[in-house]
Design a protein around this nucleic acid. Structure first.
Lengths: 195, 195, 195, 195
DNA sequence: AATGAATGAGAGTTCATTCAT
DNA sequence: CATGAATGAACTCTCATTCAT
């Protein structure tokens, strides 16, 4: 499209590009510092631009969040098939993939909360995550289920929301290790053996 | 005292009591209808009193939430020893107790969220729950661990926060069954058997 | 108490009353100075109160405008029947009533504009004026038409809007005498005599 | 149309012309659709140019409005002497001329409002209309006054503003017939006959 | 000469909390 | 003691206008 090494961009996109990058960097910093609910003004100030600029580039807050984290989400999505193909047991692949997902969530202050929120501003964020990652997770689950390594009754959506929930507030409290609990949850997915 | 015909008598105690009860009822109703984040004004309106009255009785929102749910929290706390004494396996006792806790959380719109929030207004709510229920849970965990039925590395605080997190948003989405996930988490607590 | 002239108002309304009056005075002043579109904040500042106070008393801008001018609108409405009963010709009564209406409009900076605006914020203002004054005007027109002193094809609504329109911008420009034009319009209402 | 192959030729003049015409067409369309207050951006989008281009060609909104309607204003201006010369009574000539003016105003959504507004952006529009049309109207009025067919005390400026005002909002409300009221106003210009 | 990205003032609105009555 | 009016900070969103490319 933008062709090969991508050059076709019409003239002065270079500037806008750079500016957008500045915006994304500032937003990322602001999200880290104050969570994804940080006031738009703060991000603008951080970036040294006017609020209008942010609204131009990202009409809704969710658009901004998506843009900030798109690469990492993509990476997470692509890791699913790779892990399945890498030769370990399906349950192990699932566990590792979930681990990547947790990595992502726990390092993003407030992202897990936003994913659960039914706030209108985050509906598109919600949709983006679901559309991109649920199928990946579903594939992992199905494979593991087919191999008899996880119970069949849990669906990808439910599992991901559960993991997302477990990550809420992680990192704010040393007594709470989200990753450990997620590990237990994944362990609990195994079919019960007879006593 | 305030019975009979008494008017000038020191009737205030009874009056205040009744008033406080009205408040608690109204708050309970408002919490159910709109979650624990419901505007203070709405609760006041529901109770037919001024907002000032609420602030007088319950300086912080958390105080109000605590008061509303104190009975149920108490019941939950007392159920712990009872379950342990009732003869089942320690793991089963733990599972049943967690179930009670989930019952409580999922029927209280927004309570799970409030428990995780680090909002200053909820700090006392936080403390109350922790002080009352963590020891109970810890006792159950220890007993089960001593019997070799759960891994020893999980602490009560962590487990309860995990369960609380899993309950966030429960009931708002038919595709998400918090109780099932909690069940998996509890199942995951069991020590790994050799393959 | 608030007894005396007997006014069942419950207790401390006295204060709120006074405050509301302050608000109305400030709003009237602000309307005069900057028109009825003056920002809510400015009115609040003028009155020395917070913006919230204005929203509490008058949820919409139109409510405020109505309140400010209600007395004068009432007076105008009541003058209609009085003029009819006062013995002059019906056309003269109509002319004098329109004059009162013009008095009102031209002394209120921007009110005439607001009456024409289809801005949602003014819909209730619109309705108030129409409901109150159109019937009064209609009565005057009918009487004059029955006496053969005005053409029958003009309706009260149309006439009032026409007069309102003529008053737009009156007082801002010494070369424009709205009252004279209104006079011509009313004169033009007379049936044509044969040449 | 970009014609032949010419690229480096001194095409700018033609280019600029065409561009300006595109702008005027787009503005006319936008004015019709949303009134003369339509956001500058919308016009630019309609024309397929940047907002800067509009500002370059027409520094103020009024300049744009003037340009869009210049032809019709010219036509209106030229019709005055023609009507006077066409042999009818001076009052009839005035009436017909006013009719042309109304034609113009009522077909231009929001133009009448803009003419009255004291918004700085419309000062030049104001001036243009006045400079061009007031003398024409004055001539018609004087002629009719000299013939004893209209009262002498009304000035052209006043009359035109009155007519303009009566046209505000015309077409938006079926109960309001601006043309009828204008007709009454013009009729009211006749000197009073003795009773 | 054209572009459209950036600016930033300003409007409306909400609600936790205080305090005079 | 109860009341609820008042406060005002905080937030979102919209454009007219400027200016670097």
């Amino acid at each position: 499209m933008d062709s090969a090494a991508g050059k076709a961009a019409p003239r002065k996109r270079a500037d806008a590009r750079r500016n957008e990058q500045t915006l994304l960097d500032a937003a990322a910093a602001a999200f880290l510092a104050s969570g994804v609910d940080v006031p738009v003004r703060d991000i603008a100030a951080q970036a040294g631009v006017g609020v209008g600029t942010i609204y131009r580039h990202f009409p809704t807050r969710a658009d901004l969040v998506v843009a900030v984290y798109r690469h990492q989400v993509e990476a997470c999505a692509e890791a699913g098939p790779a892990l399945l193909a890498s030769g370990g047991s399906p349950h192990a692949a699932l566990a590792r993939w979930i681990d990547l997902f947790v990595d992502f969530l726990v390092t993003k202050h407030g992202l897990a909360e936003a994913l659960q929120s039914d706030d209108a501003a985050f509906q598109s964020l919600h949709a983006y995550f679901l559309n991109r990652l649920v199928p990946v997770c579903a594939r992992l689950l199905e494979t593991a289920a087919a191999a008899g390594e996880v119970r069949p009754e849990v669906h990808a959506y439910e599992l991901m929301r559960g993991v997302g929930n477990l990550c809420i507030g992680a990192g704010r409290d040393p007594r709470y290790d989200a990753r450990r609990l997620v590990g237990l949850l994944i362990e609990g997915l195994r079919p019960t053996r007879e006593e």
